[in-house]
Design a protein around this nucleic acid. Sequence first.
DNA 1: AGTTATATCCGTATTTATACGGATATAAAT
DNA 2: ATTTATATCCGTATAAATACGGATATAACT
Lengths: 211, 211
Amino acid sequence: MSEIIRLVIADDHILFRAGLSELLKKNEDIVIVDTVSDGEQFMKLIENQNKIDIVLLDITMPNLDGFGVLKKMNAVKTNIKPIIISMHNEGNYIAKCAKSGAYGYLLKNADEEELLKSIRTVAKGKKYFSPEIAEKMINFMSENKISSDILTTKELQVLKLIAKGMTTKEIALQLYVSTRTIETHRANILKKLEVKNTAALIKKATDYNLV
Amino acid sequence: MSEIIRLVIADDHILFRAGLSELLKKNEDIVIVDTVSDGEQFMKLIENQNKIDIVLLDITMPNLDGFGVLKKMNAVKTNIKPIIISMHNEGNYIAKCAKSGAYGYLLKNADEEELLKSIRTVAKGKKYFSPEIAEKMINFMSENKISSDILTTKELQVLKLIAKGMTTKEIALQLYVSTRTIETHRANILKKLEVKNTAALIKKATDYNLV
DNA sequence: AGTTATATCCGTATTTATACGGATATAAAT
DNA sequence: ATTTATATCCGTATAAATACGGATATAACT
């Protein structure tokens, strides 16, 4: 806890910003450098002021939202580590933030302990995603698990080879059957998964984790 | 801590099984119903014995591995909740397990606290993935963010429409350009992503989260 | 001023994939 | 014993995708 953590809060809700400041102020190792109410203000801030370790970043903000900030920060060279604070708990959002360079993701109803834990973990350069967030991600990822038994084993085998980029002819050779057989399999697979062509097939198959 | 948690360990490493048993035995709310050394044994066990709440499941086992067990358990009606214990910390594995119905995922070098926490959380019917695991998943998800800039915006746009199952002709109509233009785009996309056909393209595109 | 990247378009040809309408053998299920 | 599902195969035909070879206009970068 020796090092001082310099922190900025970017959130358009005044009360939330204030409450968060008060709450963090109590900790000797954390200094609130500034608070801003939208992404543009934040970007202006970091142009002049680069002694910032962490920004607590809201997703939904006017002018420039959290995603926008993440994007711009990727372009600019900076070592400010963003932690997303959001009401959205859909795995959708979480993955998107992670990909955009977020170091953490907190729900607004997270408790103080969780908040401090994430700040201190991220300050050390490590990413932190709470078990609760992990659960959301898991649920998001495991939603799509239907239709793994509507295909026969042969069809599934063929599907996997298609996904590897093999043509009908190549598959037929490898499986020691006629190309017509594979053609029939393909037709049946398309029908069963209710798609019209290979592109949609592979999209669906990967979405549903069949390949 | 009131309720008794009935637990089975499925792992082919004798010492690990034993150690785990000893460790868990100390807790009054946990009872080790049995320990087995492979998936087949476990499946036989649950045919007769259904008073099991949780199984600690190793991924790599002889005869029938952890994935196989998860799969079979999906088919059979049971309320045994599996927690994966694995040496693999690749997000790859974790996501696969989550999709196959795992309630938790622990690394073999997790500490006692973590283990108990996950067991008790899962016993309550909630899923539990440790922050460490969450981090791996995040890293895994954000690893594949390459090549989102090797495609031009137009190419990316076309790629997304291909993934939706649209044909070259349909895409051309929608974008008010010639089919030849879309053909060229397709060719360039294939070349850039180093794939030979649509199937492999969509596979790679989804893997790398481009669509 | 010259290169590079992007987006657009075309000809010719071949290869793959899809559509439609069949068939047969086998094993499992009722 | 008959139906059902699976896996295999074929003819004919069209649609779509891929492989070559080009080209032009524009904007951006050096």
